[in-house]
């Protein structure tokens, strides 16, 4: 059952990736990204990482994507036509990415063929506990980082000529 869902989400991911990579319209690309992000949340849930699934949906799909959509909106104002995405050096990109994919799959993949995962319990409680005990410092620092990037983004995006 889990594998069936897993392969379903995989299909969604693949479709999203294809859309993202090959569409000419930027909105379609953004929607493709959205599909990928949502499907990933589903896979996280299947892997017993519920908190992360939710965070993924909220933060990525709801935050980052919206941010990107805003970006699309703000950078596409020159003409009334939606911007067309052009590609450059597609061959080279294909070669490099295919090489990377093959390298990983051929050289690194076989190491995990005989690995047997264990069934692990849900992680919400354990994750929260570890966030506030073991990783408190990192947590705090992450907060500071968020604050800083908030300010930075606000400053940079402002229309003042500074």
């Amino acid at each position: 059952m889990a594998t069936f869902f897993f392969y379903g989400w995989c299909g969604v991911i693949v479709a999203g990736l294809l859309t993202l990579a090959m569409s000419k319209k930027i909105i379609h690309a953004a929607l493709g990204l959205l599909a990928v992000l949502v499907a990933l949340a589903g896979i996280y849930a299947l892997l017993s990482a519920e908190l992360l699934a939710v965070i993924q949906l909220m933060v990525y799909a709801g935050g980052v994507l919206v941010l990107i959509l805003f970006g699309i909106m703000l950078t596409g104002r020159l003409s009334d036509q939606p911007m067309r995405i052009e590609s450059r050096h597609v061959g080279m990109g294909l070669v490099v990415s295919a090489a990377l994919f093959l390298t990983l799959v051929v050289f690194v993949g076989p190491a995990f063929l005989s690995v047997a995962p264990t069934d692990k319990p849900g992680s919400l409680r354990a994750l929260s506990l570890s966030l506030f005990s073991e990783y408190t410092l990192a947590f705090e620092l992450a907060g500071i980082l968020l604050l800083v990037s908030l300010i930075a983004g606000a400053v940079m995006a402002s229309s003042r000529q500074s």
Binding site: H89, M92, G93, V96, A99, L100, T103, F107, V108
Partner: peptide, 15 residues
């Protein structure tokens, strides 16, 4: 692109 190619070749050799 060039950086990735370099990294790739390094990876291949390492692996």
């Amino acid at each position: 692109t060039w950086g990735m190619l370099a990294l790739l070749s390094f990876m291949v050799w390492m692996l």
